[in-house]
């Protein structure tokens, strides 16, 4: 058994896939792991892989070439999953990529590949991707921006999965003329958008703590209006906190001002 160990990024994973093809060991004997290893296996051959942007790009291009966009999107979004169900997801993606490449070689369409849920790798990718997309759907709605004194809209999020890039795409199109920042606090990553520019992603942005807590004059007024709207919209005779919590799980509450 050969175990490729790579950095926990999509580029890292794609670099290992590239390396695995270079090494020409039979794929069935390989494994790719991108998270820290706790249990070393005695009879395995561990191969550390350095992330290489160019190799990663080549794998990426290949996938874009042979996959339809839904399948491609599922593979990539599954990687963003950080729930326990994502255990060794990199390995599942690796083996599925191998399968895709084989299918492309034999000119079989990969269109229905993700429907083969009897395959454990695919089933895991399917579940992880679904979980990520579900959380993204939640955050499309539950993300809240506050207007800072300088007019920038600032949102803090605490997602289970590493999905800031998905949110960034969404809000780029939605607020093209706004300046906004989305900050994934636990991961310390921020997405920055300026009008007429494409957004950028910053690791460890080290914001000025004071600046991001000074809100504009309007901010208080509109957030109060919103909270009052939110409270008056409830039909008392239908009150059902259990249902409410099921629909908007508690973990989102601290970032949605109407519920904190």
């Amino acid at each position: 058994m050969n175990i490729y160990i790579c950095e926990n990024t999509l580029d890292g994973l794609f670099s290992s896939i590239f390396q695995a093809y270079e090494d020409r060991h039979p794929h069935e004997d390989n494994k790719v792991i991108s998270t820290p290893i706790n249990n070393y296996e005695l009879f395995a051959n561990y191969i550390p892989v350095l992330t290489n942007a160019e190799y990663a790009q080549r794998v990426n291009r290949k996938l874009l070439n042979i996959l339809d966009c839904t399948t491609y999107y599922q593979l990539c979004s599954a990687f963003l999953c950080e729930s326990t169900i994502a255990f060794e997801i990199s390995n599942s993606i690796y083996h599925t990529v191998v399968r895709c490449i084989d299918m492309a070689k034999s000119k079989t369409s990969t269109k229905n590949l993700m429907k083969d849920l009897t395959n454990p790798y695919i089933s895991q990718i399917f579940k992880c991707s679904k979980r990520v997309m579900r959380e993204a759907d939640h955050l499309y709605g539950f993300t809240r921006f506050k207007e800072l004194q300088n007019g920038i809209l600032f949102a803090r999020i605490h997602p289970e999965n590493n999905l800031i890039t998905i949110l960034m795409d969404h809000f780029d199109n939605r607020f093209p003329l706004e300046s906004f920042i989305i900050y994934d606090e636990p991961r310390d990553i921020a997405a920055l958008h300026h009008p007429h520019c494409s957004s950028i992603l910053l690791k460890h942005p080290s914001f000025d703590d004071e600046a991001i807590c000074k809100y504009s004059e309007d901010e208080n007024r509109f957030s109060q209006l919103w909270i009052s709207f939110f409270n008056s919209i409830t039909i008392e005779s239908r009150t059902n906190p259990h249902l409410q919590q099921q629909m908007i799980p508690k973990r989102f509450w601290k970032d949605t001002i109407e519920l904190t």
């Binding site: 759907d137 499309y140 709605g141 539950f142 709207f229 939110f230 919209i233 409830t234 039909i235 008392e236 239908r238 009150t239 059902n240 906190p241 259990h242 249902l243 409410q244 099921q246 629909m247 908007i248 949605t256 109407e258 519920l259």
Partner: peptide, 16 residues
């Protein structure tokens, strides 16, 4: 897109 859920568990999506 649902933006929040009121205490009766209904989705709040629009300024109604």
């Amino acid at each position: 897109i649902c933006h929040t859920f009121s205490a009766d568990g209904r989705c709040v999506s629009l300024l109604k």
